[in-house]
């Protein structure tokens, strides 16, 4: 019998269930992502999608536990940050599971999960983490017992910028990957706002300019290339500055946009010029998934008490600095 934590993710577009042994092995990781044929995420529709799929995802996970002799010892749930309706749906599933199996309920911060699951694949223990997704663009360092966002977006996330740009081009959600694909075919770079303020970034001016370029006849490919090259150069510059400032010798790339080959390529060039190493989270763990939630649950298990169901409220706004990290030494 292997003891394991079941984790549920539902902060935005994806509902997922994962199982992680107390030794930190992610044994099981299944998810389903809400998509649209046009337009972006509608939070209520996404929540409806999650509610429709949660019962079978949970039942399949429990079936897996029976089949391979895994004993669930806790339920971990991503209570935030994220979209309220989506968070509440996953939390209901997690609470029901926790009550019916009489297991402790562990609230997991979604940002911590992305950072920790990426760190699991690093060769050093204290990397600079770049977390880029549809909802987040953050450079994260661990200092004084907490994860700290040393650089972040001041407005929209990089992935969000790509998704909206794709939406303007007529693609459905998620359209970021489509924009990345078009960018590879672009031939011309157009000057776009490059906004790095200290360690923080802004992508909204760049997006506005891209929309204007599209309506004045520039090709999708060239606009995509310019947007991707400029935005990636901004985040890589901020990571480079953090590496220089912290003296860290490893960069960890995580989040949905971590799947971009171009971003990994740029980061790895930057890293090798500074004698640092790049680790990219495996693609099945880069986007939102339940596996990473169960993994953080396994880190918390025994160190953090479970919460009572009546205080397991979702936290749509929950900064990474607010979360104690008792499994790491200060």
């Amino acid at each position: 019998m292997v003891d394991a934590v079941i984790g549920i993710e539902s902060t935005a577009h994806t509902i997922g269930v994962g199982i992680c042994s107390l030794d930190g092995d992610i044994l099981y990781n299944k998810w389903h992502t809400y998509t649209t044929s046009q337009g972006g995420i509608h939070p209520r529709e996404a929540a409806r999608h999650h509610a429709r799929l949660a019962p079978s995802l949970v039942a399949d996970a429990l079936g897996y536990c029976r089949d391979v002799s895994v004993r669930p010892v806790a339920v971990a749930s991503a209570l935030g940050p994220g979209l309220g309706p989506c968070l509440r749906t996953g939390a209901v599933a997690a609470r029901a599971l926790s009550q019916s199996l009489s297991l402790p309920f562990l609230p997991v911060n979604h940002l911590v999960a992305h950072v920790e699951v990426a760190r699991k694949f690093c060769s050093t223990s204290d990397p600079v983490t770049l977390f880029v997704s549809g909802g987040n663009t953050a450079v994260v360092l661990f200092r004084n017992g907490r994860y700290r966002m040393v650089g972040e977006t001041l407005d929209i996330a990089l992935g969000n910028m790509l998704d909206v740009l794709g939406r303007e081009m007529g693609y459905g959600f998620p359209s970021g990957p489509k924009v990345l694909e078009l960018a590879e075919k672009g031939t011309k770079m157009v000057d776009l706002p490059y906004t790095v303020k200290g360690q923080d970034m802004s992508f909204s001016g760049l997006l506005t300019k891209c929309k204007k370029l599209l309506s004045s006849g520039f090709s999708k490919e060239d606009v995509a290339k310019s947007a991707v090259e400029t935005a990636f150069a901004m985040v890589v510059e901020v990571v480079e500055r953090t590496v220089a400032l912290s003296g860290s010798n490893e960069v960890s790339l995580t989040g949905g946009v971590a799947r971009s080959r171009r971003l990994a390529d740029m980061l790895s060039k930057m890293c090798s010029s500074r004698g640092a190493k790049l680790s990219v989270v495996p693609s099945e763990l880069s986007g939102d998934n339940g596996g990473m939630i169960s993994y953080v649950g396994s880190l918390m298990y025994g160190l953090v008490d479970g919460v009572r169901i009546d205080s397991s409220k979702v936290v749509p706004r929950w900064r990474i600095e607010q979360v104690p990290i008792p499994w790491r030494k200060s």
């Binding site: 770079m189 000057d191 490059y194 090259e229 400029t230 990636f232 150069a233 890589v236 510059e237 390529d265 740029m266 980061l267 060039k269 930057m270 010029s273």
Partner: peptide, 13 residues
């Protein structure tokens, strides 16, 4: 020069 970013952008910056 920063080899990771496009040549035009790098020169301009």
């Amino acid at each position: 020069p920063k080899l990771y970013r496009s040549l035009d952008l790098d020169n301009r910056l």
